[in-house]
């Protein structure tokens, strides 16, 4: 049975929300690994994988995804409500980034935090927050 554009948009939006939730879980796991093993961030292969994943999630947050879908379905998926949800999600990510930066700043007085490790933690928790918020807003 062929789905109408609205039904396709509904289904794809729901799948996008679930993907965001999974991506957020991956990001939080990465943040935990970064925090437990800051020295591991010197591994170039891990660095490249991290950069690719980070860029993918940022692209998803910036565009809403669905670039391979037809224009009508994509337009419905990225309508006013979805754009507002994405904006709110990115705001949450920003504030989390600020909080993480301040926490890392003061933590560095007690524990030496490598720069690369700190940047990885900050980025991962900020993106995870944005993804979780977007997933929550889209799936509720």
């Amino acid at each position: 049975m062929t789905l109408s554009p609205v039904e396709q948009a509904d289904r794809n939006s729901r799948n996008r929300g679930l993907l965001m939730a999974i991506a957020a879980t991956v990001q939080l796991a990465l943040a935990l690994f970064s925090a437990l093993d800051p020295a591991g961030t010197t591994d170039p292969v891990r660095g490249i994988v991290w950069a690719i994943l980070t860029l993918l999630w940022l692209l998803l947050l910036a565009t809403g995804g669905g670039v391979l879908l037809n224009r009508q379905v994509r337009s419905m998926m990225n309508d006013e409500v979805s754009l507002l949800n994405r904006r709110r999600a990115i705001e949450s990510g920003f504030w989390t980034a600020m909080a993480a930066a301040i926490a890392l700043y003061f933590a560095s007085y007690s524990w030496p935090v490598p720069v690369r490790g700190a940047l990885a933690i900050l980025t991962e928790v900020a993106i995870a927050t944005a993804l979780i918020r977007y997933a929550w807003l889209e799936l509720r």
Partner: peptide, 17 residues
């Protein structure tokens, strides 16, 4: 809601909210 959403070019969720 789906029919109206399709006429307007938005998601059904938008019509609902």
């Amino acid at each position: 809601q789906a029919a109206l959403a399709e006429l307007v070019g938005v998601s059904r969720k938008t019509v609902n909210t």
